[in-house]
């Protein structure tokens, strides 16, 4: 994939460079030949719905999984043949806690520190420091199994940064936790980044990506639909007018008819309706008439204001709200 030179960043050599990455599980192609690069010091966002291939990509980049094909280099180290080559440089916060349920918070952190070769004194000091930073001092001696979801998440993040890695992978760090904790975690990510940590973040929260990331990749069905800086992505919406029509009935090929009958309009299907885009203000009347003539019962026509969410919808054709709801439903059903 060709990257827009403006979007590909400034540094001559990216910290993470991936090209033609492919991974299939039996009949599912989880990652379908993606290429991207992450610059030193940026927060790079992977934004996509369930099953887009976000976790699979992280697993490959962190050495938990082997790609079927493609080249990966992390900090100049070639990880294509040896998935473990760069593991000393990276910290990983998985989508679900992977700490030891039977150990206390403090022991979990000390154990993780030992895996990176930290000495006893250093381990204990660092563990205490992080427990303090995350407001978990009171729970330091309690078994991890008894932690609440938010506490588990915080400790998992602490474990991921215990060895002060220059590169941090975060897989949906704020999914399934309360608003205040999520805000705290976002602040923490921003703080880590400001002290030099390069962050690779997956999320399905558009606002989160918008607030934190310098660049965002939209990933859908194993492919990157678009990578750009937040400003560039937003620039797309300048001078565009979008109206969303909701209706009841079977839409059939209504979009083709709208585009044929009303030149200058671009139409795409969204759940329970269509989304109409134009360089000039959209005249609602003709569209409604056309829809009604098609036997559809129009219930609402709403102007959509420019937002990153809009950009995401127009590029991927996926309703952002839907993506979020589905995710939360999945979370609600599952365990910790």
């Amino acid at each position: 994939m060709e990257l827009d030179p403006d979007a590909s960043g400034h540094g001559p050599e990216p910290l993470i460079a991936v090209s033609g990455l492919k991974k299939a599980f039996e009949d599912v192609v989880a990652v379908d030949g993606i290429s991207f690069s992450v610059e030193r010091g940026e927060i790079y966002g992977f934004l996509g719905p369930n099953g887009a291939g976000k976790t699979t990509t992280i697993n490959i980049l962190t050495g938990l999984s082997r790609p079927d094909s493609g080249a990966i280099s992390v900090a100049g180290l070639d990880c294509s043949g040896n998935p473990k080559a760069a593991q000393h440089m990276i910290g990983v916060v998985p989508d679900e806690s992977n700490l030891y349920p039977e150990l206390s918070g403090f022991d979990n952190l000390c154990f993780c520190a030992s895996l990176y070769g930290m000495r006893r004194r250093e381990r204990q000091e660092r563990a205490e420091e992080l427990l303090r930073a995350f407001g978990l001092e009171q729970a330091a001696g309690r078994r991890f199994a008894g932690y609440s979801r938010g506490m588990k998440r915080k400790l998992t993040i602490a474990a991921g940064i215990i060895h002060r890695p220059p590169i941090l992978f975060l897989d949906e760090p704020t999914t399934g936790i309360d608003v205040a904790s999520a805000r705290q975690i976002r602040q923490l990510i921003a703080d880590l980044n400001s002290t030099g940590t390069t962050v690779f973040l997956t999320t399905h929260y558009i606002e989160e990506a918008e607030r934190l990331c310098r660049r965002i990749a939209f990933i859908v069905r194993g492919r990157i639909a678009r990578v750009d800086t937040v400003e560039n992505l937003m620039r797309d919406t300048e001078g565009r007018h979008v109206v969303r029509f909701s209706f009841r009935g079977d839409a059939g090929r209504v979009c083709e008819r709208i585009e044929a009958a009303l030149p200058g309009l671009r139409c795409s299907r969204v759940p329970d309706g269509v989304r109409v885009e134009s360089a000039d203000p959209v005249r609602v009347g003709p569209v409604v008439r056309l829809l009604e003539d098609d036997g559809l019962e129009v219930t609402e026509a709403r102007k959509i204001y420019p937002s990153l969410e809009e950009v995401f919808v127009s590029i991927t054709g996926i309703e952002a709200g839907l993506m979020k709801q589905e995710k939360e439903r999945n979370r609600g059903g599952g365990g910790s």
Partner: peptide, 15 residues
């Protein structure tokens, strides 16, 4: 199964 094994696989030590 509990995924804590992933911690070990993520550590920079040989298999």
């Amino acid at each position: 199964k509990g995924r804590s094994f992933e911690r070990l696989l993520l550590a920079p030590i040989s298999l």
